[in-house]
């Protein structure tokens, strides 16, 4: 059985401006990733590293300029008729920009019931109302009747996000690309929503690509899943979540893990300066560093790092793209056992 979704050497180049000011940005480079049914994959990485772009490639909003996106083994850009329809319903996205994602002139009920009626998921409006009410309760929007009659601008930021999650779930998809779906809700609600996603996976075998900057929550949703780490448009590490967090291999991911705040005011120091990074500055996408894209910030870099781009290779049960990963890992193991 081919995977549900597969990215094959997928990349995308954006062109902006014109004439002398014309810029091309390689937002994604050589991404290989397979998502199976019922799998949860968390995607993390720096702001601007291409997470949303990758999500939009999967749901067909962007077309790759290199490589392919396959749905059950077939290129999504060649799908037609019934197959295309199956893909469109089967792969849903919860957009990071929750404001733009809802039609401002329709009530929530109008927006959400339309696809349900169109695709015969429910028979009539009354059934749609009941079905949607149930989902709204699931995402913590109670009492549901009040929310269904609202317009998008009448909702708070977090309420809107939860609605988008309910909308994605309502068409019973096979995969949900959830782009920062809980960034605007409080910690308590975050945990409830993540357990909801985990339940949906259990109950309906829905897969999730969970794009987030919150490593703490990645652990909840994907406790048994994988995590993918990106840097400047490239996949630089992946592993099972717990292993990746306990033992980060790539120096960037290690820095990212060290930066996760602890809710303890006693630890409020000049934290940013203690991070294991040579520089906090994000390299320019228009003027990418040579070799390893992380080398200008990497505390471990050596001459080879500026010369050659490291390849993603297996290590410690996962994959990493760093010339010195083996060495760094061995060194860290030694330090650990030394204490």
């Amino acid at each position: 059985m081919p995977p549900l979704i597969e990215l094959k050497d997928a990349g995308i180049r954006f062109t902006s401006g014109a004439g002398r000011k014309k810029n091309t940005i390689q937002a994604l480079t050589g991404v290989n990733l397979a998502i199976d049914k019922g799998e949860i994959i968390a995607v993390v990485g720096e702001s601007g590293c291409g997470k949303t772009t990758m999500g939009k490639l999967i749901v067909g909003i962007h077309k790759p300029t290199e490589g392919q996106v396959l749905y059950k083994g077939r290129d999504i850009w060649t799908l037609k008729g019934k197959d295309y329809h199956e893909y469109r319903m089967g792969v849903q996205m919860v957009h990071q920009d929750s404001y733009a994602a809802l039609n401002p002139n329709k009530t929530i009920f109008q927006s959400l019931s339309l696809p349900l009626l169109q695709h015969n998921i429910v028979k009539n409006e009354a059934e749609a109302f009941e079905y949607l009410s149930g989902l709204l309760v699931d995402v913590g929007l109670t009492p549901p009747a009040i929310f269904l009659e609202k317009y998008p601008h009448q909702l708070s930021g977090g309420q809107r996000q939860r609605l988008l999650l309910a909308r994605a779930l309502s068409v019973r998809p096979e995969l949900i690309v959830a782009d920062e779906p809980v960034s605007m809700v409080d910690v308590s609600m975050r945990i409830s929503l993540l357990s909801l996603m985990a339940r949906m996976k259990e109950k309906y075998n829905v897969s999730f690509l969970y794009i987030t900057h919150d490593l703490g929550t990645a652990r909840y949703i994907a406790a048994s899943g994988r995590i993918v780490v990106m840097y400047l448009g490239r996949m630089i590490e992946w592993n099972s979540i717990q292993k990746a967090i306990d033992c980060p291999m790539h120096p960037y991911f290690h820095a990212l893990i060290s930066a996760v705040p602890e809710a303890d005011p006693k630890r409020r120091t000049e934290f940013a300066r203690q991070l294991p990074l040579r520089s906090l500055d994000l390299p320019n996408l228009l003027n990418l560093p040579s070799g390893c894209k992380f080398h200008p910030r990497c505390p471990y870099y050596e001459e080879i790092c500026a010369r050659e781009e490291p390849k993603l290779h297996p290590l410690n049960g996962g994959y990493v793209a760093c010339h010195r990963a083996e060495e760094i890992l061995a060194q860290r193991e030694k330090e650990k056992s030394g204490i």
């Binding site: 720096e46 920062e180 900057h213 990212l256 930066a259 996760v260 934290f271």
Partner: peptide, 15 residues
């Protein structure tokens, strides 16, 4: 919500 859209390293940086 000034930093909710940002990764933790950028959050630290902005803060």
């Amino acid at each position: 919500e000034p930093t909710t859209a940002l990764d933790v390293i950028t959050q630290w940086y902005i803060l």
